[in-house]
């Protein structure tokens, strides 16, 4: 897993790029990194309002339920959207320096996880106040974040190299992510899905990760070992596919952009 070894061999470059991404992201904005949790919280508030008052969801502590799902999801969606265009966006760097190119999507993913963790730490006290048991589950939460990171990274590598060759991928990505979001039990729980469609959730690779997050934050019911096992498997699969495709295409990057 070359991209992970970069954490050690090219850590200076990586952290500088992350720093650059963060600075560039909030260049000229007053609230700066506060947006990292203002945005998902606002979204959660709106969705929570709609679902509790209009659709009348029978879920206990529904806002927390949504936040526990929204934060990881928006991290994934943001990282994928940005990493899809990361190679063309960093063309000026790639034309100047002969650096391992994995560092570019890697830095994008790390950037989004920095934002994710910031937001997570900000909302964690609320969870702890509502469910004091959460403190016990913090190691599980850490494991969830780690697995989630590896899974996202694999997809980001795949998408970033794929998009260099085929820009259409990025166009469809936004729509696809929205579609995926609705198919994923973020705003609803699995129990609400009619038995007939349940399989759709079961084949959704995001579902196990969400369950781990929910288990540690919101305390969904059981089956955590099974989800962890599937999650690890999915991570390995995602990373392997991403690394393989990226390594095969990377030689052509400069010729294509």
């Amino acid at each position: 897993m070359k991209s992970l070894s970069l954490f050690i061999t090219h850590r200076d470059i990586l952290w500088n790029l992350v720093g650059k991404n963060l600075k560039a992201r909030y260049a000229g904005s007053v609230l700066g990194i506060l947006w990292a949790f203002i945005n998902p919280l606002l979204l959660a508030a709106i969705i929570g309002f709609v679902f509790t008052n209009i659709f009348r969801m029978p879920v206990e502590n529904f806002y927390l339920f949504i936040i526990a799902g929204m934060l990881p999801w928006s991290c994934l969606a943001g990282a994928l959207q940005e990493s899809a265009l990361s190679i063309p966006a960093h063309v000026s760097l790639l034309k100047q320096f002969s650096i391992p190119r994995e560092v570019v999507p890697l830095s994008v993913v790390v950037t989004h996880f920095v934002l994710f963790l910031t937001a997570l730490l900000a909302v964690l006290p609320i969870f702890i106040l509502s469910y004091p048991k959460t403190v016990m589950f913090l190691p599980l939460l850490a494991a969830a974040v780690l697995l989630w990171f590896l899974f996202t990274l694999g997809l980001a590598l795949l998408l970033s190299s794929w998009c260099v060759q085929n820009r259409d991928v990025h166009q469809i990505l936004g729509t696809f992510l929205t579609f995926w979001l609705w198919l994923t039990p973020v705003f609803y729980s699995v129990d609400m899905i009619p038995e007939f469609y349940r399989w759709m959730v079961l084949v959704n690779p995001v579902y196990p990760f969400l369950q781990i997050f929910r288990e540690s934050l919101w305390h969904a019911s059981g089956g955590i070992v099974r989800f962890l096992a599937v999650g690890i498997l999915l991570c390995g699969f995602s990373l392997a596919a991403g690394s393989y495709v990226f390594a095969r295409k990377e030689g052509d990057f400069l010729k294509r952009i």
Partner: peptide, 29 residues
């Protein structure tokens, strides 16, 4: 190797000159 190939290569437009130098420094190892 250090190179001056494309005008502006290696610089990020949103960062200041000084930040860019520091960023570039790490890219030059």
């Amino acid at each position: 190797v250090s190179s001056l190939l494309d005008l502006g290569a290696g610089f990020h437009p949103e960062l200041t000159g000084r930040d860019n130098l520091l960023l570039n420094a790490s890219l030059y190892n």
